[in-house]
Design a protein around this nucleic acid. Structure first.
Length: 311
DNA sequence: GCGACAG
DNA sequence: ATCTTGTCGC
């Protein structure tokens, strides 16, 4: 291994490319999935829109027909800065109303699809699907998530099928897309994000604003933290309606990023940072998790330059 | 040619 | 996505 082989300049993504033909395949898959997206509430907790409270009974619910929302999953994927071909998918299950983590798991493996804007699901879903598959087998029944929050968009997407739709349709689960950054659809004017941010910080309206596209509300920009003027962008993945999706997101939020996603993000990032173990997994559950040095329980909101800007 | 562009 | 230090506020 001479130093020439480790040249950093040529390094970032040595090869992970995707041909135009491949992208077409991805796009047609999205169009097929799109037909399977449901924006209806079918579960009783969705219809009643009831969440667990500290006084809720401690019985272990079978999530499918329980009338109270108690367990929310968060999915995220991280990768090493110098190697797009490896990634870590993390799933975390959070309990309401405490927002404590009761189950977490990750899978690290090779990923052969690069990140291409508009095709995130093609890159991230396969690994997420594997971590969900293991959840079905290994997660204690009483901790199984009733809804999943995915780091990315749902139907707020150029073809109406973001990564959260891949998850929701393929897993047949209520699923919500939560994007940290604005994805401007082609028909939206360049200044649309600024308009939204302006409306939110002006406090004229609410703490959220509708995102309309072709006469349909495809998502909402929601400001979840008083400490940040920056919203997240919530949209339907599948098997839930938008208002209920926003309701869930708000229920799970202490900071700008909803806890399930934030915890999954911290977890996957930590696995990546711990280096060495590039192939592996790590199921953990039951609340008293002893895994890597604990990555739960951040005392305060992460430091940010995104302080609220008003004038 | 240049910028934009969920993660 | 990832890299970074200090810094401001409760």
């Amino acid at each position: 291994m001479t130093d020439s082989s480790k040249d950093d300049s040529s390094a970032q993504n040595p090869d992970l490319a995707v041909s135009p033909d491949m992208l077409k395949d991805f796009a047609s898959e999205q169009c097929l999935l799109k037909e399977c997206i449901s924006e209806q509430n079918t579960q009783s907790w969705q219809r009643l829109r009831r969440a667990a409270t500290s006084s809720s009974p401690w019985t272990n619910p079978v999530y499918a027909d329980w009338s109270v929302l108690r367990y929310v999953g968060g999915l995220d994927l991280s990768c090493p800065k110098d190697d797009q071909k490896r990634a870590c998918a993390a799933l975390v299950v959070t309990e309401l109303p405490s927002l404590k983590v009761v189950y977490k798991d990750f899978i690290t493996d090779r990923v052969n699809v690069p990140y291409v804007p508009g095709y995130l699901g093609a890159r991230e879903y396969p690994l997420m699907g594997r971590v969900l598959e293991r959840m079905r087998k290994q997660c204690p029944e009483q901790f199984k998530p009733q809804v999943l929050l995915v780091d990315g968009n749902g139907i707020l997407h150029p073809r109406g099928c973001g990564s959260a739709c891949h998850v929701g349709v393929k897993e047949k689960m209520p699923c919500v897309g939560v994007a940290k950054n604005f994805y401007r659809l082609p028909k939206w004017e360049a200044s649309f994000e600024d308009n939204i941010r302006g409306r939110l910080s002006a406090g004229i309206t609410d703490d959220m604003v509708d995102l309309e596209h072709d006469g349909k509300i495809v998502g909402k920009a929601v400001r979840l933290s008083k400490n940040s003027g920056k919203p997240v962008y919530v949209s339907v993945g599948s098997n839930i309606d938008l208002d209920t999706a926003v309701w869930v997101v708000k229920l799970c939020s202490k900071y700008r990023i909803p806890e399930p996603i934030r915890q999954a993000d911290l977890y996957s990032r930590r696995i990546i940072a711990s280096g060495g173990t590039i192939l592996g997994d790590g199921t953990d559950c039951g609340g008293g998790v002893t895994d890597l040095p604990s990555c739960v329980g951040e005392p305060e909101e992460p430091n940010h330059k995104d302080t609220i800007h008003r004038y």
